[in-house]
Simulated assay, not measured.
Amino acid sequence: MSARRVFITGGSAGLGREFARQLAASGAKVCIGDIDAVAGVATAKEIGGHFIKCDVRLETDLQAAARWMKTEWGGADLLINNAGVAQMGTLTDTPVADWQWIVEINLLGTVRGCKTFAPLLAETQGTILNIASMASFLHLPGAGAYNATKAAVLALSETLMLELEQDGITTHAACPSFFRTGLAQNMRAGDDKARAMTERLVERSRTSPADVAAAILEGMERGEPRIFIDKRTRKALRMKNWLPFSRYLGGLRKEVAKLDARMARITKGQST
Rank of each mutant, 00 (worst) to 15 (best):
Leu107Arg: 09
Glu104Arg: 03
Ala66Leu: 06
Gly11Val: 07
Val96Thr: 10
Ile52Arg: 03
Arg247His: 08
Ile102His: 04
Ala155Thr: 09
Thr159Glu: 10
Val96Pro: 04
Gly251Phe: 07
Trp68Asn: 05
Lys115Ala: 15
Met134Ser: 06
Gln100Cys: 13
Ser177Phe: 05
Ser2Cys: 08
Asp93Leu: 14
Lys235Ala: 12
Arg17Lys: 12
Gln185Glu: 01
Val256Pro: 12
Asp191Tyr: 07
Ala155Asp: 04
Thr181Leu: 04
Val38Met: 04
Ala213Asn: 03
Asn186Pro: 02
Trp68Lys: 06
Gly89Tyr: 03
Leu252Gln: 06
Lys53Cys: 02
Glu255Asp: 15
Thr233Gln: 13
Ala37Glu: 12
Thr60Glu: 14
Met239Ala: 11
Gly250Tyr: 05
Val41Trp: 12
Glu203Met: 13
Thr92Ala: 15
Glu18Ser: 01
Leu140Arg: 00
Ala76Gly: 02
Gly14Ser: 09
Ala215Pro: 02
Glu72Thr: 11
Lys231Asp: 13
Lys45Ser: 15
Ala143Arg: 01
Gln270Ala: 09
Glu123Ile: 12
Ala155Cys: 01
Gly27Cys: 09
Gly48Asn: 13
Ser2His: 12
Thr170Cys: 06
Leu120Met: 08
Asp93Gln: 14
Gln166Leu: 11
Glu165Lys: 14
Leu78Asp: 03
Phe228Pro: 05
Ala64Phe: 02
Phe178Met: 01
Arg204Met: 09
Val153Asp: 04
Gly10Lys: 03
Glu218Ala: 15
Arg247Cys: 11
Ile105Lys: 09
Arg21His: 13
Ile102Lys: 00
Thr198Gly: 06
Ala184Pro: 05
Arg4Thr: 13
Val212His: 09
Ser208Phe: 05
Trp101Met: 13
Leu15Val: 04
Gln166Trp: 08
Gly11His: 07
Leu121Val: 10
Ala155Arg: 09
Gly219Asp: 01
Ala196Thr: 03
Lys235Asn: 07
Ala86Ile: 11
Gln125Asp: 12
Thr110Leu: 02
Ala135Val: 05
Gly223Lys: 11
Ala155Asn: 07
Leu79Trp: 04
Val103Asp: 14
Leu15Tyr: 02
Ala135His: 09
Lys53Val: 02
Leu58Cys: 09
Lys258Ser: 12
Leu78Arg: 00
Glu163Ala: 06
Gly49Ser: 01
Glu165Phe: 04
Ala174Ile: 03
Arg222Tyr: 10
Glu165Gln: 15
Ala76His: 06
Ala152Arg: 05
Leu107Thr: 07
Arg253Leu: 04
Met69Phe: 10
Gln63Glu: 15
Ala28Phe: 00
Ala236Leu: 01
Ala155Ser: 08
Ala13Trp: 03
Glu59Gln: 15
Ile35Arg: 15
Pro141Met: 04
Gln166Ala: 15
Glu123Asp: 15
Ala97Asn: 05
Ser271Trp: 08
Met161Glu: 14
